[in-house]
Design a protein around this nucleic acid. Structure first.
Lengths: 220, 220
DNA sequence: CATAAAACAGGCAGAATTGCCGGTTAATGA
DNA sequence: TCATTAACCGGCAATTCTGCCTGTTTTATG
């Protein structure tokens, strides 16, 4: 399940295991801290992602935290990297494994279903928190924005690799991808209001639109 | 520009001016506080909506704040009411005034353009902050969720009044409304990544889909 | 083995927020 | 007019979070 594109945005300390014990341990605790920070983010929102909450959760001392992440923002930056990487990795794992045991006719439904699942992961919840927080926090946006655009480029690359059926109509594919991404985000956020029935209708509509895009019924 | 539906969710203290001077003054400062709170929300996010920031902004004392809103949450609750009300009021004002000087053929484009504009108001920015914060704050969700559902009901009622063209196909109209609402939310949040060109393509696609829904090309 | 470096522990001061309280001024109505 | 109610003022303690600081233990290296 290795992909070149995705590998290009591997977060620091998540690559091959270093030989030395100390660096290995360091990378391990670093990852524990980042994962705990993501939990805080998902459970309490951006403002509750606090250094001391992370320290408590991982049973780490304040000093150890300061050693790995001198400021809160550096921790948040690491969270951003981790979240983008894991979000795409999880989607690709899900999609590609489901794709294996399916016919080509179901391709679109398989993909949208996988994307809809990916939108319910804690990584996507974290992404949402960060995206909204970045709207009002210039410092966060300073590295979130570029990371998001980098993620988008890699995403497009992965889509091209993963959807050979769309060859020679990549503009349509990108349109379809943007479309699903946008609709699903809105559906997720408004689900508490719209409820299950209207969400299902939206799914049906989404798939029909995708079929039309695929059949060149919509210009780009 | 008065509508019965909208009037049903008028926030406290925004109705007719009370006769007594004291109550009038009270309502005035109350509104000032709520508006300042919305500014804080839009500029700094939910976590920067603090009682003292609001007090500073309105030049009110901490004591006066406490008199009107004993706790921060009561202030937030007032903000929720105000935001939902103003959001819909502004959209209806915009849409209905633009609708007056246009042909019926352009109806769909007029409506989507108005909705897209409404998504760029500070009221929508505030709504977004609240919606995301409510996902991780049960206390906020306790009154935000119900308010959002109330808003949705009123919204449907207003749409039925405002779109006589969709008579006898209200299910399609609701589908179209949900669709635009979802897509535009995603487009807004991902605009920093997708940029202007891809956003324009999405607008084009959206309008084409709406035409098909209107022409009964999509089942409900 | 000895020294350096890295990882970890825990405490402290300053700033920011929140809720609350006693006091003050202005208006309302009998 | 005068007691009562409403609006407003400013300060206090408790809490929380951040950044920094001084030690201590563990690991690497000459």
């Amino acid at each position: 399940m290795k992909t070149r594109m995705l590998h290009a945005m591997l977060p620091a300390g998540l690559g091959e295991e270093p030989a030395r014990w100390q660096q290995q341990k360091s990378a391990r605790t670093r990852l524990r801290l980042v994962e705990a920070a993501i939990d805080c983010l998902v459970e309490g929102g951006y403002s509750r992602l606090t250094t001391q909450a992370v320290a408590e959760r991982t049973k780490a001392s304040r000093g150890s935290m300061h050693h790995h992440f001198p400021t809160r923002m550096e921790l948040v930056a690491a969270v951003v990297e981790q979240v983008f990487y894991e979000r795409m990795r999880l989607f690709l794992d899900d999609y590609l494994s489901n794709l294996a045991r399916s016919s080509e006719a179901e391709m679109l439904e398989i993909a949208t279903a996988a994307h809809w699942r990916s939108v319910h992961t804690r990584e996507y919840a974290a992404y949402l928190e960060l995206a909204v927080a970045a709207r009002t926090d210039p410092e966060l946006d300073g590295f979130f924005g570029p990371a998001a655009r980098r993620y988008d480029e890699v995403w497009i690359g992965e889509m091209i690799e993963s959807f050979p059926q769309w060859r020679d109509q990549w503009e349509q594919m990108k349109l379809a991808s943007d479309f699903v991404s946008n609709v699903h985000m809105g559906m997720l956020l408004q689900h508490p209001v719209y409820g299950e029935a209207r969400t299902q209708r939206m799914h049906k509509l989404t798939n029909e639109v995708l079929r039309l895009i695929y059949a060149h019924k919509f210009g780009v």
